[in-house]
Nucleic acid binder design. Structure first.
Lengths: 333, 333
DNA sequence: TTGAAAGCGCTACCAC
DNA sequence: GTGGTAGCGCTTTCAA
């Protein structure tokens, strides 16, 4: 592959001049500029990004650590980050953290070795302390979907508890009194927070959630199916079910339907996330919207701002909003 | 950030020795090795990947050019590539081609500037000639979802035509005679090929697809809905509909249901792709499986093999397979 | 087993 | 406007 020297030699100018042309620098005669450009094309010259990064001490690259590209939720997250990277003409480097502490650490380290100028990290496995240390050592690193008070200004997060509360309040406002919950033991804190929010809302209204009304499952369709079967066998007589996420909710609806319950006429179901899926389900799923794409975009913008030395505001909390579709029925007006 | 010189100085050895330790090279005394390792930790030293890439003339990086992360189909593609990259301890660099010739070219150029050691490219907008030129200039570049005869050994592709044929044959084998098709004008050739396959299968059986039975729409749920409304207004009396992809099929089913047609009792529907969605739909969607993850994994493996000078076999054609679920009814046994 | 030094391709400074 | 050149952080000879 041709180097800058080859171009300089072929064009009969110095490497300095070629460099100026590459970088659209000033002070190059039109004649030389044209000539150099022509030679670059003829030789198929392509500047070496690594050499550039080495000498400028930074590469126009945005690193992203997260887990499962295949999961629609994470795909949307990645899509948001990619969009911002593209707008800013930055390369996107992706490392999978696999939701394990070792792998997440490894993923961050690799990206740091690449000298990415900015970093968006989705970490659920690393400790607060370790992330704080990373954040302090790397000014252009932003956390997404995580809230650590000491570095709050570097965290873009969702108030899961408020989401759980809102779901509970909404159902109660429609007259639901017997409410059940399909939660998850997914090894992150989100399910627990959503459940706590729900419990608090119900407790405040004097109709607390019975322990027996809570069922756990894997955070996917099958998990929702299994949990619902368990729930049904308890014969609770719930009129509404609050579910950890939309994927589980699809399983919930499926098992309810198979067992002769109509949704929402007999049982209302409310999901969480508002991934694409929720619009494909029948009935269309009422759910708490997790504005993950918007959050990912903000995280990426923040990281890029920080890398250029700008300061950012110190609160990036998002609150889930209710998306009313067809899976919840009003028991009264 | 500490450099190799800092480490060498602090450890009282030369940079050459430090380099040997970094690369697990031989010929370093245990004493020095331990000492250097300790110093690296103390200083928070992290090798500069750019400097390394510069001197070794290659970086352990796999580049991927494709379009929409958010689309489940592409997310699965990216997931497959990511998996292989991870297994081989390669970084993943992603560039969005946006299905436009200029952007796709730009995306490839950027990746080439990074001196990626291998490249997987999903291009629908660039011409055969241009891609052939790229492939010849870059031995470790592999195309996915595209078949160019001159560089067939570098193409991992799906026989869309065979998929259309198989769908048609299947429906006819179940006794369907009035078959309609919801296709797409998406600016790539896939829809056309699938339609041609279908037409051929029907023609061979002497029951050709009427022009009037073909409706086009955007390749998404809404497109499927609109196309189906148009189809219904023609009053064709079709007993089965072959749809371009699963997302459209969801729209097809939805409009059919809203208009009082039961699926599959009144009308059978068959999709294409077998994305996650097809299992969430009710009825579960019968569809032609596009083994995109497997294909993406093969493409990534191939690119990596090529980059290390290995040769690869010269045929990487995949054929869609029928996945029987619940949206197709047999009119006879 | 160790170190000195050349050089990867480029940018940016300084001199002209 | 232009060119010479130091040096970014690292690997890899070659000598010792």
């Amino acid at each position: 592959m041709a180097t800058i020297k080859d171009v300089a030699a072929a064009a009969g100018v110095s490497v300095a001049t070629v460099s100026r042309v590459i970088n659209n620098g000033p002070k190059v005669s039109d004649k030389n500029r044209a000539k150099v450009k022509q030679v670059m094309v003829d030789l198929g010259y392509r500047p070496n990004a690594n050499a550039r990064a080495l000498v400028t001490q930074s590469s126009p690259t945005l690193g992203l650590v997260f887990s499962e590209l295949t999961d629609p939720f994470f795909a949307t997250l990645a899509g948001g980050v990619e969009k911002i990277a593209r707008e800013h003409h930055r390369q996107l480097l992706i490392s999978n953290g696999l939701v394990s502490a070792d792998t997440e650490r490894q993923a961050i380290e690799t990206l740091l070795e690449q000298r990415c100028e900015a970093l968006v990290v989705h970490s659920k496995a690393l400790s607060d302390d370790e992330l704080i240390a990373y954040a302090e050592a790397n000014p252009a690193m932003v956390l997404i979907n995580r809230h650590i008070p000491q570095i709050a200004h570097r965290c873009v997060w969702l108030d899961n508890r408020a989401g759980g509360e809102a779901a509970g309040r909404y159902l109660m406002s429609l007259g639901h009194q017997k409410i059940a919950c399909v939660s998850s033991r997914y090894h992150i804190e989100d399910p627990q927070l959503r459940l706590e929010g729900l419990q608090q809302a119900l407790a405040e209204a004097g109709q607390p959630l019975a322990d027996i009304a809570i069922e756990h499952g894997d955070p996917n369709q099958t998990g929702g199916e299994v949990a619902t079967q368990n729930l049904l066998s308890k014969n609770l007589g719930a009129t509404a079910i609050v579910v950890y996420n939309d994927a589980m909710a699809s399983g919930v609806i499926s098992v309810l339907t198979d067992n002769g319950y109509r949704v929402p006429e007999d049982v209302s179901v409310i999901g969480f996330d508002d991934v694409l899926l929720s619009r494909y389900l029948r009935p269309k799923l009422t759910t708490m919207r997790y504005p993950i794409e918007m959050m990912a975009m903000e995280a990426a913008e923040m990281a890029l701002s920080l890398s250029s030395g700008k300061t950012v505001s110190d609160c990036h909390k998002y609150v889930p909003t209710l998306v009313k579709r067809d899976s919840v029925l009003a028991l009264r007006d």
